[in-house]
Design a protein around this nucleic acid. Structure first.
Lengths: 154, 154
DNA sequence: TAGGTCAGTTCGGATTCTGAACCAAGTCGG
DNA sequence: CCGACTTGGTTCAGAATCCGAACTGACCTA
């Protein structure tokens, strides 16, 4: 509790930065669809039942931020599809965590979708890992401390 | 509309359910603060620089959804503080994932905060784990399939 | 008594979302 | 060639939100 009250720990700045990109509910739902393989404007629109201008704006933002990339998939009438980039794929743990929380704490009954380890087909788990101790652990065993990029510059 | 058009995997229903609770950027920032130990109305307000009515509404929603709980911490002028419940604590992996993505892909330079394994002080990692194979793996090794709660009931 | 803290509520204006209509470029059937 | 259809948008007005500023109200402290 002895934290330096208002040292303005930028502890969440990375979260804030992430939210500047992901920000709102539609964006996250678009990404969910992306992970499910949806790539085209109209497929997003139909699946999400999202207003066109909003979809346009969100896709543009995701492309601008390098989360999705616009690929030409048809020459003659130029048509583009939106695919996850490496940066976008890196959001997988976030989406998985969100989905699992919904499964565990909000769903009435069983989970609608199960994620499995592709190699063996068994359900996967998501864990915190310490490579030093070589063990997994829970949220209760986490501590935080200012990193190299903190406001130590002061 | 006639939804059964596509495969109609409700894969994201859990994500959607989660978003119904977390929904917008303020809610997530409030939770970030909660994990950092912030509990009181005015502390949230000052730290986030959020409009009061919005904070009121968001806190109420989080309490209604059992993510935060309202605890009386002062009798005489009745004052409440907002604490994470077990359900709220369970959001830790989501917040951590979001923070790490920001660290890894958005931050210029080093991460402002490092999460460590409390027991040993070494940085932690977040991984997908298969307890059958007893190994950790990446997003590329994930597959999904309809779970017991899928639309099979229809 | 005056001033301060904490946790709100009320209110009007500024954003943002939304659906409906329109546009453009190309394809297909006849 | 004509008209209908598809895909991926844009424009626009009205509705729903969000927000900051000001106010309230219960209490404490000097």
């Amino acid at each position: 509790m002895e934290e330096p009250t208002s040292t303005d720990t930028p502890a969440g700045c990375s979260i804030q930065a992430s939210l500047d990109v992901l920000g709102d509910r539609w964006t996250i739902l678009i990404l969910r669809d992306s992970f499910r393989g949806v790539r085209r404007f109209d497929d997003f629109r139909r699946d999400l039942d999202i207003a066109r201008p909003v979809l346009t704006e969100r896709l543009k933002r995701l492309v601008d931020n390098g989360v999705l990339a616009r690929h030409l998939y048809c020459e003659r009438p130029p048509r583009y599809e939106y695919r996850l980039t490496t940066r976008g794929m890196a959001l997988s743990p976030t989406l998985v965590a969100l989905m699992r929380w919904g499964d565990d704490w909000l769903s009435e009954g069983a989970a609608p979708t199960v994620l499995v380890h592709e190699a063996c087909g068994h359900p996967l788990d998501q864990q915190f890992v310490c490579w030093e101790c070589d063990e997994t652990f829970t949220p209760y065993d986490i501590a935080s401390r200012p990193g190299p990029g903190s406001a130590a510059a002061h």
